[in-house]
Design a protein around this nucleic acid. Structure first.
Lengths: 339, 339
DNA sequence: CTGTTAGCGCATTCAC
DNA sequence: GTGAATGCGCTAACAG
């Protein structure tokens, strides 16, 4: 509102607006002396360029959008941390949008983003999405897109993922080696490629160890948490032979704990759970869970780097720029408190 | 880049830009028929107004900034959740900035924000901040500011907080009733008013129960996590009589657990810990901790509501609009796993 | 090295 | 009801 403009600086200094603008951009075609005068006054009056005027003129916003299902989740919050870090280093601003895994919201959000508000987009698709036309139409227009974790295979762009197949395999094998014979799989969502891929790893591990694949032990967790808890409770009740669970999302691991508790079972003793999760942050508070920990912070940084590099060089993003990072299996801690 | 503009719509429809603009804003001075024609074409061509042009012209950005120490923290991520919700409902966009509790960064970020990029600011100050001149100069210019949780008492604006004094009192009393006689206080930071206020509650509870206040048992956790863990370890080693800890931040509770473990102590058995935390989300995974749970989501919503209301009405924000919400004491679950 | 001019896309005043 | 003209603050092309 009140803020000081180039015009005011120019008047004060008896210079043209253009010169002031150039001086502040350290253009090589302005005398050192003038630069100094301009800078001094700018600093004194605490001049801040109007970002929107600049964006309008240059048709770049120095802003990226981050679209994720939720932020109250260790994976996404760590990823955002990495994204913000890279953005800040490159003087980019970060707009955040939450879909709450709702398809309608995701569509509405992508609509907003066609107006040149952002130069690029980092996205993890919601589990409710099956139709990707909203994303395809987005891609036609300006913003460059990089997907991370929950990628959209239908789009021809770079993805940042982890070794999901291998992780699914190792997780399942971990349970088998721990003695589990009836392992349920809590699938994050059949709509998501990471869900399908992790499940392929699960199936492969069962097969490799001569265990049957029972479709009835696969649970699709695309719905809301409360519903999942109720349905997992039901699953455990009707299938008491279940002695292990492989959850492909932290939320599902929590639901499974709640379900076990509803049935009065002592979870860590009776049913082994392994889950994708970034709870290593609070590992001491969560000793009962074996996790497959994704390098969320690095994923965020990597995705943002790819995006910003492409924006700066004005080059399209190619699928060949995709990156696959590695997850780590972190065994649960001993049951007792000490150690 | 490619996106369609008012001009293009106007040409296509043989109307003036002004009319098209008015039609899309549902102005009462344009015929219903024309409105319909304009809307139809706009929808067909997927017209999206250029947000920056509009912002420049109207001098409002429909954007708010959120400045928080970190996002990988249940309290802040829940708060952001609430903020985003309210913003979305009011068609506002949310820019996010992380200070990592670093004063330099906080100053740099507030500089960015003076350029009219945001209409308002929601902020939780970093624990390193002692000088608030950067905030005061911010307030002089445009953006309206509302603080939440970690407020800046030096500024004359609304704050959204919780009953910190009472919570500190109740938390300490909880430990005393559980038999603790030497309760350390892990202060979030002596620089933060919430830290000081919670500590006042701690002191009052000690006094009320006839326990001495020992300054040596107060630990200032303004530093980085690793350092805190090391220093808390040292504290526990030199003061083996400590039988309870009151942490005024989740991070500190985690550090205290790590410290106990470094000493080979079984934490939940020997030392009772109570902490401000929003780990109720993962309560089942964190059964060992008694928490004082703040209504983080509501805090975010409330702060955003106050801010947006003020922006929309173009009224300054008054300290009298401050709100205090209530935290809840959630006892730890039984030590054993089941129920 | 500096100034003049033009225009980014939109909202708004003033005419008609 | 509609159109023409103006300018938000800034950058970039072109003169000098």
């Amino acid at each position: 509102m009140s803020s000081v403009t180039l015009k005011q600086l120019a008047q004060e200094l008896n210079l043209s607006i253009a010169t002031v603008s150039r001086a502040l951009q350290d253009s090589h075609e302005v005398s050192a002396e003038t630069k100094e005068r301009v800078r001094a006054l700018a600093a004194e009056l605490n001049y801040q360029p109007n970002a929107y005027a600049s964006s309008l003129r240059r048709n770049i916003s120095k802003t990226i959008g981050v679209v994720v299902p939720e932020v109250n989740n260790h994976f996404f919050s760590l990823a955002i941390n990495g994204i913000e870090e890279v953005a800040r280093q490159n003087d980019y601003h970060v707009l955040i949008y939450l879909t709450h895994d709702d398809y309608e919201r995701e569509v509405a959000i992508t609509q907003y983003l066609t107006g040149g508000r952002v130069d690029g987009l980092l996205m993890s698709v919601s589990s409710g999405s099956q139709d990707f036309s909203h994303l395809q139409s987005l891609q036609v227009s300006k913003p460059a897109i990089v997907f991370f974790d929950r990628v959209c295979q239908a789009l021809n762009t770079a993805n940042v993922t982890t070794n999901d197949y291998e992780s699914g395999y190792l997780a399942t094998e971990h349970l088998i080696k721990a003695g589990c014979r009836h392992i349920a799989h809590l699938l994050i969502s059949g709509n998501l490629s990471i869900g399908r891929i992790r499940m392929q790893g699960y199936q492969a591990a069962l097969a490799a160890h001569g265990l049957p694949f029972d479709e009835a032990l696969v649970f699709d967790g695309a719905g809301p948490d409360a519903e999942n808890t109720a349905r997992i409770t039901e699953l455990l009740r009707t299938r008491p032979e279940i002695d292990g669970m492989f959850a492909s999302a932290e939320r599902l691991a929590i639901s499974s704990y709640l379900a076990c508790e509803a049935l009065g079972r002592a979870i860590p003793e009776q049913v082994k759970v392994i889950s994708f999760s970034n709870l290593e942050v609070a590992a001491l508070l969560a000793p009962a869970l074996t996790t497959i920990t994704q390098p969320a912070y690095e994923i965020g940084k990597e995705a943002a780097s790819i995006l910003l590099r492409a924006i700066e060089k004005k080059r399209p993003i190619l699928p060949s720029q995709s990156v696959e990072l590695k997850s780590t299996l972190v065994p649960r801690r001993s049951t007792a408190s000490g150690q």
